[in-house]
Simulated assay, not measured.
Amino acid sequence: MTAELTDHEVAGQSETVQETPAWLTALRSALDPNSKRRLEALDPKPDWHSLEIGAGSGSTARWLAERCPQGKVVATDIELGSLSAEGFPNLEVRRHDVTTEDFPEASFDLIYARYVFSHLRSREEDLARIVSWLKPGGWLLLEEPAQFPVESAQDDDYREVSLATLEQYKEQVGTDLTWPRTFPAPLVNLGLEEIGIDGDISVVGAGRPMSLFWGEAIKGWGPIVVGAGTATEEQVERAAAKMYQDDFYDLGLATMAVWGRRPA
């Protein structure tokens, strides 16, 4: 459906802001530096109107609000959780489902999403709609997790349990961490211009930020993986424990980034 900006539910200051979970804090600390580097390279102007889809705890949205003081940033998520606009008059927080709810055409100079579209079964259709929300000349930047480094992991328990976990994500949620390896094709196919692609690979072990995130994922999905018969309970326990061991090192998920501009 299509709705005017003012018709979406807006988070007021009366809503309870939840404490950010430790795993989300760890993921944010692992990803934020490269996200801000890529956004900075797009040279946001002070009066830009920007949209962050799946804003999480809002660290990137707040950075954009500071970078574009005469503009506006709309930060959305399906659950607001720890997302708050407090202290940022040009930041608006909204509960919004990108798979079912629209914004008016040509609303934004920049649309940004991190770790969102690889989880959506309708990602191709959703991306086509989202491009229409860009102003002519507006930028779309996506950052998505990719599993290809984990496929080459040297530790058997870590590799097998991680891939089994990702397979359950795909079956039950729709998450496809092979899709980001197709970049930049999704944006090329949508007719965007000035296409760019970038990537970085995390390292797990020794309690690094991505280790804390992935260790919690392994533990959380462990019973489902064991129930599916793709790993044993002992394998899951060993793989999760290695994320916190000082003497363990292996490759974690990659982050693949792609950006492009709507023709002026």
Results as ranks from 00 to 15, higher is better:
residue 47 D to S: 11
residue 61 A to Y: 01
residue 179 W to H: 11
residue 53 I to C: 02
residue 147 Q to V: 15
residue 111 I to W: 03
residue 148 F to A: 14
residue 87 G to T: 04
residue 9 E to I: 12
residue 19 E to N: 12
residue 60 T to V: 13
residue 137 G to E: 00
residue 68 C to V: 10
residue 147 Q to H: 11
residue 54 G to S: 02
residue 224 I to C: 05
residue 100 T to I: 09
residue 40 E to F: 09
residue 211 S to L: 13
residue 210 M to Q: 14
residue 178 T to K: 10
residue 175 T to S: 14
residue 70 Q to H: 10
residue 171 E to P: 03
residue 123 R to E: 13
residue 234 E to R: 14
residue 208 R to Q: 14
residue 214 W to T: 10
residue 117 F to W: 14
residue 55 A to E: 00
residue 29 S to M: 03
residue 25 T to C: 11
residue 145 P to D: 12
residue 243 M to F: 04
residue 33 P to H: 01
residue 73 V to F: 03
residue 251 L to G: 02
residue 134 L to Y: 05
residue 201 I to T: 15
residue 22 A to W: 06
residue 3 A to T: 13
residue 74 V to R: 04
residue 99 T to K: 07
residue 39 L to T: 09
residue 99 T to P: 04
residue 232 T to V: 03
residue 67 R to V: 02
residue 58 G to L: 01
residue 264 A to E: 00
residue 151 E to R: 12
residue 118 S to M: 15
residue 134 L to E: 05
residue 38 R to T: 11
residue 48 W to L: 02
residue 211 S to G: 12
residue 71 G to T: 08
residue 30 A to E: 05
residue 65 A to Y: 03
residue 6 T to D: 15
residue 239 A to G: 05
residue 11 A to T: 13
residue 87 G to R: 07
residue 242 K to N: 07
residue 115 Y to K: 09
residue 175 T to D: 11
residue 60 T to L: 04
residue 94 R to M: 09
residue 140 L to G: 07
residue 97 D to C: 09
residue 88 F to D: 02
residue 47 D to R: 06
residue 248 F to S: 03
residue 236 V to I: 03
residue 4 E to F: 11
residue 103 F to N: 09
residue 118 S to H: 13
residue 238 R to H: 01
residue 197 I to Q: 11
residue 12 G to P: 01
residue 125 E to Y: 06
residue 223 P to L: 08
residue 261 R to A: 00
residue 222 G to L: 11
residue 148 F to K: 10
residue 229 G to C: 09
residue 106 A to L: 06
residue 190 L to W: 06
residue 210 M to G: 05
residue 84 S to Q: 00
residue 206 A to I: 13
residue 229 G to F: 07
residue 81 G to L: 04
residue 249 Y to C: 12
residue 206 A to C: 14
residue 120 L to K: 04
residue 149 P to S: 06
residue 153 A to W: 03
residue 246 D to R: 13
